[in-house]
Simulated assay, not measured.
Amino acid sequence: MTLPRIVATDLDGTLLTTAGTVSPRTSQALRTARAAGAEIVFVTARPPRGVLRVVGEDDGSGIAICSNGAIVYDLTTDEITASHPMDPETAAKVAEALARTLPGVGLAVETGRNVLAEAAYTRRVARDLAFYHEVDSVFDSDQPIVKLLAMSSEHTADEMYTVVSEAVGDLAEVTFSGVEGLLEISAAGVTKALTLDVLCRERGIGPDEVVAFGDMPNDVAVLLYAGAGYAMANAHPMVTAATEHRTLSNDEDGVAVVLERLFGP
């Protein structure tokens, strides 16, 4: 491929170590890529609030594609510059399909800034407790449905994905990113790849000028979009089956290894 103008990288399980940090080697590799003229774009399932706190001062400028493509977030200004929420009526139909296929499933909604959680949705992220709001129904609010979250303690995410994808069909995008028993559902057509493509077109950049990194099924679309999409050594089998390129694991600085080769002396 040509020298990349965009480095699109997932965070958890990819750029970040298991401890949830950016290693010194990876931080230096990002700076080297930027110095060579590449733009770093974080492409993540995380909401905006979960991005800035895990990238250091040197790494935390620029654009993040959050919530699996549903949000574009400017890290420098702390602004959401674009959003692609689900239509409430469609989300309600998806919820009906979830109830049929996964009785007892717990629902929550990521709004972009907060989480609306029903009683059956018992997952809580310690660092996000201040952002959770308990609701009788996620559909009682007029806040945007950036991402519908479905949790089951009785099934794995892989099991849920198989049955829910079939039940939902083309109503919405169904995926998962590593949390056991949790599905993430976005508006139809909304993926990391779709939003990255819009960003690239705005800059006059083609897919062949993009290098991407990921480890989970929600990364597959963006890895296939990029001129070179790298699956981490710790990637989900669905990712390795879909991609040609490989790198080392997140704890072995797999992203840095590739960036050093591409942008190093």
Rank of each mutant, 00 (worst) to 15 (best):
V258T: 00
D10Y: 07
I185K: 04
A8F: 05
V43Q: 00
M86E: 07
E79Q: 15
A91V: 06
L15A: 11
V168W: 02
P144G: 13
Y121E: 02
D158A: 15
D10S: 08
L194A: 15
P88M: 13
R203M: 03
A212N: 00
L116V: 04
A188T: 10
A233W: 01
E89A: 15
G60I: 03
T9F: 06
A187I: 05
I63C: 09
A226L: 00
D158I: 11
V138M: 05
A126V: 10
A193R: 03
A157W: 06
P24K: 07
Y225R: 03
R100Q: 13
T17P: 03
E260N: 12
T156Q: 09
Q28F: 06
Y225V: 00
L259V: 05
S177Q: 01
Y121T: 06
G104D: 02
V239W: 00
V54A: 09
N68G: 11
A187Y: 07
R31W: 02
A35H: 09
A126T: 12
L224S: 11
L3R: 13
A256M: 01
R34H: 07
A157M: 04
V115S: 08
H245L: 09
A45G: 15
A187C: 10
A92H: 09
R31L: 14
T21L: 14
D219Q: 02
L248R: 10
L102A: 14
A228R: 13
M232R: 00
T175E: 05
R25C: 04
L15I: 06
G60S: 13
D59Y: 11
A36T: 00
V255S: 04
P217V: 12
P144S: 13
E209W: 05
A256T: 01
G206V: 11
Y73M: 02
P24L: 12
P88K: 11
G13P: 04
V55Q: 06
A45E: 06
L116M: 12
I63V: 15
V94A: 14
P47F: 09
L107T: 06
A117S: 14
R201N: 05
K147H: 10
V125Q: 07
S83R: 13
P207C: 08
G60H: 08
V210H: 01
V146D: 08
L194E: 11
L52T: 13
A117W: 02
V43K: 05
G189A: 10
L98G: 12
L116C: 08
R25M: 03
P4W: 03
A99I: 09
T191R: 07
S165V: 04
A38P: 04
R100E: 15
T32R: 12
A241I: 00
A167V: 04
Y225F: 15
S23H: 10
K147G: 02
D10E: 00
S152C: 11
T81V: 15
G178C: 08
S153H: 14
I185Q: 05
P103C: 12
R261N: 08
T17V: 09
S23I: 07
N218T: 05
R201I: 04
M238Y: 12
I63T: 14
E96G: 10
T162H: 15
M216A: 15
S27D: 08
A117G: 06
R127F: 12
D10G: 05
I145D: 05
Y132S: 02
E96A: 15
A45T: 09
A256L: 01
E89H: 14
S61R: 11
V222W: 00
L52S: 15
A38Y: 00
G189P: 07
L3T: 14
R113Q: 11
D87K: 08
S165T: 14
E79V: 14
T32N: 07
